[in-house]
Design a protein around this nucleic acid. Sequence first.
RNA 1: GCCCGAGUGGCGGAAUGGUAGACGCAGCGGAUUCAAAAUCCGUCGCCGCAAGGCAUGCGAGUUCGAGUCUCGCCUCGGGCACCA
Length: 850
Amino acid sequence: MSRYDPSVIEPRWQAAWEAAGAFTARRDPLKPKYYVLEMFPYPSGRIHMGHVRNYTMGDVVARYKSASGFSVLHPMGWDAFGMPAENAAMERGGHPKDWTYGNIADMKAQMKPLGLSIDWSRELATCDPEYYGQQQAMFIDMMEAGLVYRKAAVVNWDPVDMTVLANEQVIDGKGWRSGAAVERRELVQWFFKISDYSEELLGALDGLTNWPEKVRLMQANWIGKSRGLQFAFETVGAPAGFEALEVYTTRPDTLMGASFAAISPDHPLARALEGDPAVAEFVAKCRKGGTSAEEIETAEKIGYDTGIRVKHPLDPNWELPVWIANFILMDYGTGAIFGCPAHDQRDFDFATKYALPIKPVFTADGSDAALAEAFVPMKSEKVHYIRGFAGEAVQTGDEGVAAAIAHAEANGYGKGVTKFRLRDWGISRQRYWGCPIPVVHCPTCGVVPEKKENLPVELPYDVSFDKPGNPLDRHPSWRDCACPKCGAPAKRETDTMDTFVDSSWYYARFTAPRATTPTVAEDADYWMNVDQYIGGIEHAILHLLYSRFFARAMHKTGHLPAKAVEPFSALFTQGMVTHEIYKTTDAAGRPVYHLPEDIIRSEGGATLKDGTKVEVIPSAKMSKSKKNVVDPMNIIASFGADTARWFVMSDSPPERDVEWTSAGAEAAFKHLSRVWSLCSRIGEMPADHKGEGDAELARATARAIDEVTKGIEGFAFNKAIASLYAFTNTIAKANASTPVMKEAIRTLAQLMSPMTPHMAEEVWSYQGGAGLCAQAPWPKADPALLVDDTVTLPIQINGKRRAEISVPKDMAAAEVEKIALANEDVVRFLAGQPVKKIIVVPGRIINVVV
RNA sequence: GCCCGAGUGGCGGAAUGGUAGACGCAGCGGAUUCAAAAUCCGUCGCCGCAAGGCAUGCGAGUUCGAGUCUCGCCUCGGGCACCA
């Protein structure tokens, strides 16, 4: 065995795996199945360290499960539609399709050297007509199932990307991709009725016990269930048709503290009043105040008194003014509220500004003093109701709310309703590079779904990107078609689908990626669900919630079995790969960032190669703009894939961020080299070498198997790797006979194989392992070797460790006590004091209390 | 503001309520070398010559025993948000 040279061994073993078809997923009735999936990448053209970490984690699980006797499905695909392709076409010319498929080829070529155990025969790209045609078929099924509808809606319009964004895609009032300030526009849009499933999507979160608690909580908050009271105020002086004003409140117990009613500037009543120039002016002012968090945060609460009044439901003689207010949202509740300044800070600020009454409903102690700020205790807290109208005078907010709803229902002025924050999913995008919505607009029949035999509705290739907007609208002939119903000339829909639709079912498609239907029952039944899904926390809400909805829709339309409505049985969200940032400033004082490879790191500082001092900024997510990126290809070229894989899995727990350091990468390489030379040394040992350490090494081997197995099972890869370091050191120092040494190093190879599969194969074959290491069964630890005959027990005196003794594992507590008290250190520390109590925890510890 | 999560050596991090700091990095000492790199061996929380003392953000509490459990604070990170 020569020097460790990954550039030689890695391609060799990759070829061997491919020749053996080692990773081809097969439905095997004799084996349990295991489906492991990492969130598929967007084909940007380059892989980054985050990909390496993500796919290595999945690969560790896949290889481990495969060795453990499972029939494993571990596929890979491309989330290939979306705007970067169009942006590239606009910026650099060329065609989105060519750009995308070119990137896929590039990225695949970069992923292959990582030696991932992926079944590439199942590869798919969402921009393949073979894929999106099936998506169109499901869209039509969902239309028939009543899960799709059109409506005119005020949408978030991204003026740069010239497209509509889902609410979920608006971040701080800006488009999530372009970063442009979002405007409001009204368009007719296609929607999925995800809100039909609000209750179910919320309730089913409880069953997702193998999901991070954090993600479940984020989804629950997003769905946002609330219980409250809806009732109508009778209006006085309102225009015709507005005799009643519906309001919704989650605090009906504060009804006696009402001091005004307020409506959103988008409320129909506000619109009806816009004939008044003063109202029109005020409403326009409200709409201008953009939606960015910064603006909202600093925006002053403003209101306009309409002069209309409403009658309090509990006292017809009590009238409240109706204001239009900028802080009332039209799309939550009914777009109208009653304000209770005493118990809501916003209402308090508003009332203070416009001199409206502030009357407490409840207080902490039953007094009725004037308030300096709103009193908003937890609903679970008990308070004294001084203007309550339902239930006990002293009760919790929750009880007060329940009593108020009961009171309203009993007296017929309102009813308890449950509302959700979750809104329907608008999927229309005015873009070219997406899945065409398969419907036709017919002058006589209206909106008609395309016939399934005409699918896929394929994107035309001959389009231009010289103007903003949707190229499909401008295409000379693509829109022209025959009405699927009456055959008359008609026009195609030009909206394409949100790319989140594409990623909402790809996991199901992987079970039968070439089928002529979206899924195949036997395949879906065998492979679903995804047993382990791995990806970034950034998809905690959107992608995962949409997928959960889509799986339900696919079940309803017959494309997935009932057991697959929660498609991801276990979810793991991995942390990012971070790196230090290196900064200098140019003559004009602007920051200049430098790539890690241009930096010379020395003790206490860093310089450029010409000696210029560089400022080192603490580790942050790798980003092109900060230039703190390490190209996986460079790492593979200098150290090999196994080193990159080993490093990203070591040190940090997988859910936490890992900092990439060149020292760490070199350390990983050094360790692999050490394993390599250890393997050589053992290979050169004479076959008849005898040593004294056989039993000891056998025990260490068993312990390593046990620890690494537990580490992988528990997603504690860093701990598995720590055990492997320790085991390597043990073997290196061991003096055992040749067969035991060989057994140990072969076991080491197997235990390392999920992380460093190429090195593992090389060691395995060199030490006479049968077949491929990748196909060898996972080693089992002999339970008898996991327990030691003697144990070392620390002895504490009053909780402080003072001595330790070594006793046989099964020694009776009384006997242990005797030995402990006779120990010379113990005697010395006790100094004759009487022992009050002695606690012996078998196999763990002894504590002497004086 | 609300909801989560986390604070352990110089650093990344280990630790079913039971010997705090596994494993790795960096550091230090040594071997090898003409020398260096590489490699190997040893050492490595802080104070102290030592005995020993002090140490898991801070302060209490529960316990024979607390990094771990409870309560109150502080700091940092993440998510949500004029959501009625």
